[in-house]
Write a protein that binds this DNA or RNA. Structure first.
Lengths: 188, 188
DNA sequence: GCTTGCATGTAAGAGGTTACATGATTCG
DNA sequence: CGAATCATGTAACCTCTTACATGCAAGC
């Protein structure tokens, strides 16, 4: 149940409401984990009733009130325990690869626009990650002497950047392969 | 619901039983999708009752009988429809990255053995993929003139290889980063 | 006799997605 | 006046994981 742990890490980095967490899951935390607001609100309630989180109602001007969560002592303990347990290395789940192999039983040319669309999404993500890296870690505004938390955030972000670059290069390989197939086995 | 589609592709490549499918999901299909036998048997039943698959009972010598599935006409149609629909680009889910960011609130040194273990798993997977590539696509036993299906299987495998190489390089980066942190902020 | 491989399942529970639902404020 | 943003939730459904369950044959 890594969503709980991802929430604990995010709230330790900075307390916030369910809405704010959902936004973070679209951004920085989203480099390695995704979650929708529905999921987040449900898990936050459970974590609060389990005593992992503290809540504070915050009134705001010109905005709805919000419930600001922060990590309680038991939450910190729970996170620490999980950090010391070994976890299973991830396995890939890549729908697009299923499509690519499936194209052998259909028209491979139909793949091209789909692969191009995916490549564009990964290009956009890469640009977004690189902008974040420049802003927070390598640009002129970045801290001269980053602390441990910043170093660790940066190495995770470098992982996201490496993943997007690898994916774009692979999709180029896929496109070249499909173009070759279509050229050598034309279907008038 | 890409599991159904992954099963359709695998059964088009070669008909087989639930058990055989489960083994394929540990191997070649496992490059991009995973599934346990429990999941597979359940989905096979549903797909059969939906008319996507045909079944044939096969008696065997020295082994239990098996139920061999193959793709029915409606299954082929269903796959074709899915192949022509756009799908969402994948988002990463990487528990280890949660741990890495979480290590800022715990002892970063405790990460080292975990990251090393993951790196070893990815090295093993890479070796396994490279052996498969040599056997099926680049070695002396490989077909001289591969067909479209083999070309597409190969490009998917190259994706798996690129992913493992990228991951190993990233985990080296993580280790170097953590070692630097531990050296500069020692905890006696 | 024990382990591994072949072969098929059930059941409970956790996790995740999609659709629906509300209501205020700010900006163009 | 409409769209976007902030803010929180419910309900139904599907998917996935984990534990439990059985039984034969082959090889050491």
């Amino acid at each position: 149940m890594a969503l709980e742990h991802a929430i604990l890490v995010s709230l330790l980095e900075k307390p916030g409401s369910g809405y704010e967490l959902a936004r973070r899951f679209e951004r920085s935390i989203g480099y390695f984990w995704t979650a929708t607001h529905q999921q987040i609100y449900r898990v936050l309630k459970r974590m609060e009733s389990d005593g992992l989180l503290d809540v504070r109602d915050v009134a705001q001007q010109g905005r709805p009130d919000k419930r600001e969560y922060s990590v309680a002592g038991r939450g910190r303990t729970a996170l620490s325990e999980w950090l010391h347990e070994p976890i299973e290395p991830e396995s890939l789940r890549h729908d697009l690869a299923v499509k690519i192999r499936g194209a052998a039983f259909d028209d491979p040319a139909a793949l091209i626009s789909e692969v191009e669309r995916h490549r564009q999404v990964h290009r956009d993500r890469l640009a977004h990650y690189l902008a974040g890296e420049a802003r927070d870690f390598t640009g002129p505004e970045a801290p001269a002497a980053p602390d441990a938390g910043q170093e660790l955030q940066h190495v995770v972000l470098r992982g996201g950047i490496a993943y997007e670059r690898m994916t774009i290069a692979w999709l180029d390989d896929v496109l070249a392969t499909v173009h070759r197939l279509v050229a050598s086995h034309p279907r008038t």
